[in-house]
Structures are given as C-alpha cells and as structure tokens.
Design a protein around this nucleic acid. Structure first.
Lengths: 343, 343
DNA sequence: TGCAATTACGCAATCGATTGTGTAAATTAA
DNA sequence: TTAATTTACACAATCGATTGCGTAATTGCA
C-alpha cells in the first residue's frame, strides 16, 4: 500500500471539505449537482478507491467470512469452498480460509485468529481430532454467525448444514443387503466425529433390520480415511477365512482402495464383492468398476452455509438444515445399475 | 462485531492513557513494570484483542494476500491454494480467494476488488479466456507484489512461478515416440494460454526431432479441458481411418477421457494406444490402466509463490522461477513402467 | 542539599471515511 | 421587500490503535 489518493486530497483540490467529497462520491442529494459531478469525475480520473480499512473501522464491519476446514485440497472440501466463495463474492464479502490439517490445536488457533480478524461469519467443518468446541464459544457469545457444515458437533451449538448420515449409511448398507450380501464390512472414520458414527449407526441398523449380526472384526475405523489406512485394512479383511462379500466405506477414497485391493487379489467386483463408497468424488466414475456411492451436495452445502450467514440477523435458535443425498448405483455393486432416489 | 473492549476501556479502568495501555500490551519498556503487568493481566482476563482493522488503518497494512484462480475445486488449484495458505498462515497473513470461473470479466472484477481490498500481495493463475492483462497494472504501478503461477502471461509483467511446459510436452511426446508411436494426437487447452501453447510446441518439437510430420487433423484444442469436450474429441479421433496410436493430453481429465473412450471401443491401452496426461491428478492412479503423466508440483508452487510475496521488499526486476517436473510412467503407456526424471 | 539523569507516562496527531448537527447563502413565498 | 424555506456545504466527533514528543516525578550522585 503506497500513497493512495484520499478524499482529503480531492477535498483540497476542490477547496471543499472531506465530508462533501465523501457525500458527493455516494451521490448524496445534499451535495450540489455541479460539485457532485465534478468530484466524481475527478475521483474516477485519479483512480480513487475508498480505503475499505478506514471505512470498515468506521462502520465496525469487515465484510469478511471465515472458513475453517481440514484440508483445502480434498474434492469435497474444495467444492464446499467453491460454493461458499460464489455466494460470498456475489454479496460483496471476502472469504478467508484456513486449514486445520485435522489437528485440534490448529483448529483452536485458527478460530482465535478468525475471531481476532473480526470475521462477520464463520463456517466450520471440524477437524478429525476435535472433541472440544469451546473455542467457538466466543463467536456464539459475540453473536457472530457461526455455521457448522458436514463435520459438525453432535450438539446443536449453532446452525448446521448437514446430510442425514444415518439414513445414507442405512440406505447404502441395505442396498448391499438387497443385492445378497450377508457379510458386510465397514471402513469408517474417526468415531469422535459424529458424522462417521452416524454412518456406522445407519449401517448397523440396516444389518439389524435384516437380521444380520454385526461382526466387530469387520468394522474398522481409520484416523484419516486416507488410502494408506484403507489399503491396510482392506487387504487384511480380504484375506479373512470368512471374507466379506460387501463393503460400506465412509468415503470414496477408502472404497477405491477396497476395489483396487480386490483386483490385486483377483476378487471380482461386483460379482464376489460389492462396494459402496461415500461422497461421489470424481474418482468414483474413474475407478473400474465405477463406484456406487452416496452423493454429497458439496457446492450446495457451501452455498447454503454462506446464505445462512448472510441472512443471520436476529439471533434465532440454532437451525439445522439437512440436505438430500442420493444413492448413486454404479457397477461396483450391480452389473446394470439404476439410481435410487432416497425417500 | 459487537461492543468489544478497547484500549480506552482498559485505560479508563486503570486511570491511565490509551497510549500507556497500547505500550503496556506490547511490553514497551517505557511503561513501568507494575502498570504493565496489571494492564496485561486485566486485558487477558477481559478477553481483549486488538482491533486489527484499526491497527491496519494506522499501519496502512492489511496482512492479507489475494489469490485469483479459475476454479477452486480442481485438484491442481486446490493443492496450489493449500500451499499458499500454509505459508501465509505461518507468517501471519490471511488469504482471500476468488474464482474467475475462467471468465475474463470476472478476472478483471476480482482484480479490482482485490486491489480495493488493499491486499499486500496477489497470486494469480489466469482465466482460460483472458488475453489482456492491464487489470493487473494497478498492482505493478502501486508496487503490490504480484506473482503469476502456472497459467501465466507470456510476457514477464511480474514474477512467475511455472514449470517448463515446453520441455514437459517434449518429454511426454518423445516418450510416446520412443515406445513406437508414429501417429500421436494432441488434446490441448486454449491456445490463448501460453502454457498450453508451450505444451503443444514441445509436442511439435518432439515430432520434428524424430522426423514425424504433424497432422493438423489430430491436434485439437478445447475451451476448458473438461471431460465432455475431451470425450467428443477422442471418440471422433478414435474412429478415424488412420487412428492415432498415441495421445498426449494437456491435462489428466482429458487423458482419462481418452482411456475411457478407448475402452468403450475395445482399443487396448497401452498395447494399441498409449496415453500421456498432464498434472498427476489423483485420478491418474485410479484409472485403469494407471495414467502416465507429468507431475505438477502444485503445493510447492503455491508455497513458493507465497514466499515470493513475503520476500518481495525491493522492487527488483521480475523473477521467473521454474520448478522441476517429472514424467511419471505408468501402464497407460508401457506395461512395465519405470520413472524418468527430467534432466 | 542540589542538580542531572532516569523513569513513567500523557498529549495530541494520525491513519481515511463517515455522519449528525449547524449555518451561511440562495431561493421562494407572501 | 421581508420573512420563511431550501440548498449546499463545513465542522467536528467517531471508529481503535499507534507513536513522536514533551514533562512531571523519582532516583542517583556528588
């Protein structure tokens, strides 16, 4: 920031006061037409731009949203951010982003930095590790709009935009059962994250409904849902004497690992092993066979979260928005797929 | 932003001046030890946080970087941003992001918004459409550090962090030639983007070096390098009487399209058709056969760009940093791959 | 005890833009 | 022509934090 031109410079030029310039520039009617036009003309010639820092100080606003996510470079997250950015940008807001790398302490640090930065709204998808949420209390008590998305706390501390993870887990699992699977494994995420617990609960409920006994041995949890962990788990499970005939995975990355692992072991998918993932990442249509998975409306989720912040005027009770998902059936579960819209 | 506590509140409490509080809080030695400690103690109890807007106004700084990219939710871009964010965050800077959606007018609008927001540095990856760059002049003339990454203008208006696209295109194509391909098609990006022209030039140079005549009919350009366009092109080219025996694609998305299209037509990859992509997106290892491609150091590129901005003190001449890439050989080009490090 | 050297702070301007209130000058109405 | 309005703008405070300069009070030393 070098020596920019200010309203004082313009005021001096026209031998008027800064307040006149300020008003002229925003077409305030109390400024005479000639003066107004002359000032606007000159300002635009000189490339004047309001100093938003000064304006923000005066107005006590920042026009900025904060976003805290685990990693930006995950398909779901980057689409989420894309949705947030679109809405924010269309409404004159900036978006500042920080990554927790799934670490609790970074989440805390980032939350404080965002608060100090006086963001006018915060959108958060929790770190895998976090089990305490009091670093968000400052937003709530200061009435800064706060929206959790996707990886949300179980308690309703603030607005949430989510999907019905239980139902999705249930639908995915029932789909496998209806296709004849009787021994369905589950690769889940950290059970300290509500969404992964819910997906697992949905899975368990589907087993229960169909009279299948859950087997602790083939229900596994990973720290990160990364390929490495999923590879290790699937290669172990696929060597079991009683090998699973189905997998419900809490994300697509791990589902892809299962398929790749099965191929190495010459296990036919979907004939001998049916796999369902979660998210509908781009890889889902690339893997062979294409992955049956749960669609996850990332962009819309971001848009809705951003809109929630924009519309958050009165401090109403926390609101929970649940978006629809869909089971997208592809060849990793059946030979001739057909989409099933969730009721 | 509600009624936060300010240094004036604290000053009143201790019956000192605001300047004393300000100095005490930053351990200025000219403030007596007792006063200093008492003030700091009280400030932290009250949860005082400096109003960075006010501090920024006074210091004429914003501690903010701007980033302008085409789409956040592309693997390369989101990794780039991840790298930028990491460096910025570690140095106390915020990152604000905007998407051009590959539209020139949005790029212009975003550039002006960033300038008005007084970012202290701007990192840009050009929109596919942009052919004029004068909306960046304001940054240059105001000496706001400006770094172009990846999709850069041909002229060196400002710092650039790039890869050697010509060399990469050359290496990729020569790889195909050495494997016996004699009729190599190219799916390129918009030729108004320098990087895609360079990739194509490298491709052409490899053909030339090996005495192969380029065939305009199998050199195609897409607007977006999206799957749809690439599908149409590859399905057309693979129906040609003189069908190509190799494809060099300017990104992985289109290379994947080629492979999928070939499979539909029962063309064996790599036996009857060898394919090389660009970027090493996650899908490269998921597609079957895994895709031979050019590694693209997205995260490092982002880090370096951010570091450049941090270190930009004197207004030196524009600097160009060229990062190394690597041809990553996988089964889409040879049965038994082996990596080739580019010299 | 007297004077110089510290110590410990306060004052006031500054960073630009904004806005409520006040007031000359110009215009209108009577 | 004079009083009543309007018109068109200036003043000054405000948003919080920062900082150069100045000064009263305390301490040190001879």
């Amino acid at each position: 920031m070098s020596k920019d031109i200010t309203i004082y410079d313009i005021a001096e030029k026209f031998d008027v006061s800064a307040s006149t310039v300020s008003r002229a520039l925003k077409d305030h009617k109390s400024i005479g037409k000639k003066t107004r036009e002359a000032i606007k003309q000159y300002a635009s010639e000189m490339g004047y731009q309001v100093n938003s820092v000064a304006a923000n100080l005066r107005s006590r606003k920042t026009n900025t949203f904060g976003v805290i996510v685990s990693w930006i470079n995950r398909p779901f997250i980057s689409s989420l951010i894309s949705g947030i950015e679109t809405v924010a940008n269309n409404n004159g807001f900036n978006v500042i982003i920080s990554q927790t790398r799934d670490q609790y302490d970074r989440e805390v640090a980032n939350a404080f930095a965002m608060f100090q930065g006086r963001v006018e709204g915060l959108i958060v998808s929790l770190a895998m590790e976090s089990v305490r949420y009091d670093h968000f209390d400052q937003f709530i008590s200061s009435k800064v709009p706060l929206v959790f998305v996707d990886r949300v706390p179980e308690e309703t501390l603030a607005d949430k935009v989510i999907i019905d993870n239980f139902k999705a887990g249930f639908v995915a699992t029932e789909h496998l059962i209806e296709l004849g699977c009787r021994r369905i494994a589950h690769i889940g995420g950290s059970q300290s994250r509500y969404i992964y617990r819910e997906r697992q609960e949905g899975y368990l409920e589907a087993l229960r409904k169909h009279g299948l006994a859950p087997d602790e041995g083939i229900i596994r949890h990973t720290q990160s849902l990364y390929a490495e962990e999923a590879n290790a788990i699937s290669s172990e499970l696929l060597e079991l004497p009683q090998r699973p005939d189905g997998f419900f995975c809490a994300n697509d990355t791990s589902a892809v690992s299962v398929i790749q692992c099965a191929r190495k072991k010459d296990i036919a998918v979907p004939e001998d092993l049916k796999v369902v993932g979660f998210n509908d990442d781009p890889v889902a249509t690339i893997i062979d066979p294409p992955l049956t998975t749960i669609s996850h409306p990332a962009i819309r989720m971001g848009q809705i979260a951003a809109e929630h912040i924009l519309n958050k005027t009165a401090s109403k009770d926390p609101e929970v928005v649940t978006l629809e998902t869909e089971l997208i059936v592809r060849q990793s579960s059946v030979i001739a797929p057909q989409n099933i819209v969730m009721p």
